Amino acid sequence: MQDDLLVVGFDLETRTEVHIGDRPLEQWRTLGYGRRETVVCFYCWHGIGAPAATKVPLLARGRIGGLVRPHFAHPANMAPPGGHTQETVWHINAKHCLAVGPAACPTSAECGWSSGPSSVTAVRTSTSSSPTAPVSPWRLSVS
């Protein structure tokens, strides 16, 4: 399932969370594993599934228009045992979507369905081939 893809990393130079869609893939490759190694796994660095401050430089994978959308990946044998849980990936992706603001999130017209109380709604986002589309499968709609 493509919603499991790792799309949020952590930039050690700027000390900020980064998204695979923020820059062209070639720039992420330059900053990742085997090169500058300043973009690391957000989850490992923050102690989710690994001891805090675990530095795992990421690979930038995928290709615009390819079968799998662009994403980050752990190098071979450097992921935590069992990887990061799907719920963790969704959670961080949703937080990133909220942090970048509504312009980066799809409108309710693009969503397939919604549920929840009238004031807060969990919305399943549409799948998009756009490399800059939000990657979280969920977003909150507050009315």
Rank of each mutant, 00 (worst) to 15 (best):
V8K: 02
P117W: 14
G47L: 07
P70R: 07
P106W: 15
E17I: 12
H96G: 02
G83P: 02
P102H: 12
W138F: 15
E26M: 06
N77G: 06
P102V: 15
A53V: 14
S119L: 15
D22M: 08
H96S: 09
Y43K: 03
A99L: 11
S130F: 10
W28Q: 01
W90Q: 03
P106S: 09
L12S: 00
K95Q: 11
R124H: 15
T14M: 05
P80W: 11
P117Y: 11
Y43S: 01
I92V: 12
A103D: 10
V7Y: 04
P117H: 14
R69T: 09
G65D: 02
T16V: 10
L67C: 07
T16A: 07
G9M: 05
G82C: 02
S128G: 04
E87Q: 10
H71D: 00
A109V: 11
S130I: 05
A99Q: 08
W45M: 06
G83T: 05
P57D: 01
H91D: 13
G65A: 03
P57W: 06
R69W: 10
T16H: 06
G112N: 09
Y33C: 06
Y33T: 04
G32V: 03
P106A: 10
G112M: 09
G116P: 04
T85W: 11
A122C: 13
T54R: 05
E26I: 08
P70N: 04
L140S: 02
G65V: 04
P80E: 09
Y33Q: 07
N93R: 14
W45I: 08
R69M: 13
A94I: 14
H74N: 01
R35P: 00
W45R: 03
T30P: 00
V40Y: 09
T38W: 12
L12T: 03
V120K: 12
A133H: 09
F10R: 03
A53P: 01
T38P: 00
G47I: 11
A73S: 07
A76H: 10
N77S: 08
C44M: 10
I20P: 00
S108C: 11
P70F: 05
S108A: 13
G65E: 05
T107R: 14
A109S: 11
R139Y: 12
A52L: 14
G116M: 12
V18P: 00
G62I: 01
A73I: 06
A133Q: 07
T54S: 04
R124D: 02
N77K: 15
I20Y: 02
L58Q: 01
V100M: 11
G112E: 13
P80G: 04
H91P: 01
G47E: 01
P51K: 13
L140I: 08
T107V: 11
W138I: 15
R23I: 01
G32E: 02
S126E: 10
T107M: 13
E37G: 01
R15K: 13
G101N: 06
L58C: 00
T121D: 05
Q27R: 13
N93T: 10
R35I: 07
L5I: 04
